[in-house]
Design a protein around this nucleic acid. Structure first.
Length: 464
RNA sequence: GGCGACAUAGCCAAGUGGUAAGGCAGAGGACUGCAAAUCCUUUACUCCCCGGUUCAAAUCCGGGUGUCGCCUCCA
């Protein structure tokens, strides 16, 4: 399979360090609030990549951190008059709730910064020994000018960055691109002991430390949002490679941004959507489908009209799934007909198209198209006369492919007894051609959110 | 100033040299007691514009226009 590597700006054939095994690290959230749809994109995309790698038979070790000490958390804790840990623990819990709604699997490890202070200190010590740091009164900085390949990921060079209008004006730094590895404690802030005095880690060092601890000095894939390319990932490279002298990650993957009305989503523009808010109006599976319906590197626009479109298309897939289940329950085993044998061959073709799309830098839009192709074919080729065997094969392939995308995994609940009784009563009324009563019951159920469909194999229902 | 992305039907969106996927919405038809679901037909002589390369370009090259992002915490 091929993946687009930000480091080389090319799609490259994916080769793992250890055959059959993938070690991947994805930058996780700073837990000071509910996460928004912009955060949701990398969670969903890289969860999908992980699922696909596993589908292709790789043993994947996936690490995604929680940043649980940071300026924003400290500020939030002060505002609410609680501890930093209260804030971070709360929003870690909330993260898992929303992630579950989005069908994002738990990582193998979700390390927290506060639990890895000693690993962080160790790396800073190694950098210090390698002459890549300087200490200004208890603040330890990375001396980016001493790391010759600084800027290789973002293709920035130091001189041009200095020409930029918005570089840090911290006067104690030797160069504007230098960044804090260790920050001296300020009054009232959480702090840990270190060789440089009481303080806390800088913003970038955590990912280097935790990636190395759980995955080793060189990993296969490191991923995150496009905005992390500079400076965050650039700094991670400087830290990790500066300490070990080895490549930090072989493939750097970055997802594109989400805009609202073609503008960046931001609190000041008032176009900010948390996943929690959207979950009140939509099943979060719709959000997942929305994210997967475009290529992960392209910017996408977000809006309620688009969610409505996505909701309708997802319904089409659920209809197909439930139709297949309904047909399977109402047919018998019999030998495959010639047409069914042909359909079986087609099924294989859809699977191939899916795999080909996913192999091409996880082209989920094309992969979804393959599923829609399959669904149309199944809808027109299969019916109440079909053999159980071919229905089962279609159903199983549909579930196999959609599971890779994390879609279509919800099953229908059972109906309440009194609703079942109403459905039965309606069937009786229909037999007696009492259409008025039949329609009345159908309307009643619709008001309760139950939609009925009359099929040659009996009544089907679904929740609206 | 530096780095980068995007521009394909009413909307969303694939497609990186061989003659425009898929979804949503719309229209017409079939099926149905009526619906729903589903199926069929239909909606881009053309892919922002202008040049060039080629037998052949949405796809490559050059130029232009427009939009957006990063260079500061940020997915």
């Amino acid at each position: 399979m091929k993946l687009y590597n930000t480091m080389t700006r090319k799609k490259e054939e994916f080769k793992t360090i250890v055959p059959g095994e993938v070690k991947m690290y994805s930058c996780g959230p700073t837990v000071y609030n509910f996460f928004h749809i912009g955060n949701a994109r990398p969670f969903i995309i890289f969860d999908t990549l992980r699922r696909y790698l596993e589908y292709r038979g790789y043993k994947v070790t996936f690490v995604q951190n929680f940043t649980d000490v940071d300026d924003k958390i400290i500020r939030r804790a002060k505002e609410e008059g609680v501890s930093e840990a209260d804030i971070s623990e709360k929003y870690i819990d909330e993260y898992f709730k929303d992630a579950e709604g989005l069908n994002v699997c738990k990582a193998d490890h979700h390390p927290k910064v506060t639990e890895h202070i000693s690993e962080i200190i160790d790396i800073i010590k190694r950098l210090e020994e390698n002459g890549l740091t300087y200490n200004v009164d208890g603040d330890v900085y990375y001396d980016t000018a001493s790391f010759s390949s600084y800027g290789k990921l973002s293709k920035q060079n130091l001189d041009e960055l200095e020409a930029g209008a918005r570089v840090d004006v911290n006067e104690v730094k030797k160069n504007p691109t230098d960044f804090a590895l260790w920050k001296k404690q300020k009054p009232g802030e959480p702090a840990w002991e270190s060789p440089w005095g009481m303080g806390r880690p800088g913003w970038h060092i955590e990912c280097s430390a935790m990636s190395m601890k759980y995955l080793g000095e060189t990993i296969d894939i490191h991923s995150g949002g496009q905005d992390l390319v500079f400076p965050h990932h650039e700094n991670e490279i400087a830290q990790s490679e500066g300490a070990t002298g080895k490549p930090f990650a072989n493939y750097w993957l970055h997802n594109g941004f989400i805009n609202v009305n073609n503008e960046k989503m931001s609190k000041s523009l008032g176009n900010f959507f948390t996943v929690r808010d959207i979950g009140e109006k939509y099943d979060l599976e719709v959000v997942r489908m929305f994210m997967l319906s475009a290529h992960y590197r392209n910017p996408i626009n977000f809006g309620s009209e688009l969610l409505e479109q996505t909701k309708s298309s997802l319904e089409r897939l659920y209809n197909a799934k439930n139709n297949l289940i309904h047909l399977m329950e109402n047919t018998t085993d019999k030998p495959l007909t010639n047409a069914e044998e042909e359909f079986k061959v087609n099924l294989h073709g859809y699977k191939e198209k899916f795999v080909e799309a996913m192999d091409d830098d996880i082209n989920t839009a094309d992969a979804i198209a393959a599923i829609f192709d399959m669904v149309r074919d199944a809808n027109s080729s299969l019916n109440g006369e079909s053999s159980k065997e071919i229905l089962k094969q279609a159903y199983e392939l549909l579930m196999e492919l959609t599971e890779v995308l994390g879609l279509l995994q919800k099953d229908q609940d059972n109906l309440d007894e009194d609703i079942e009784r109403l459905i039965e009563e309606r069937q009786q009324a229909r037999k007696e051609k009492n259409w008025a009563r039949a329609d009345q019951i159908r309307d009643e159920l619709k008001a309760m959110g139950i939609v009925l469909e009359d099929t040659p194999q009996g009544v089907k229902w679904k929740k609206a």
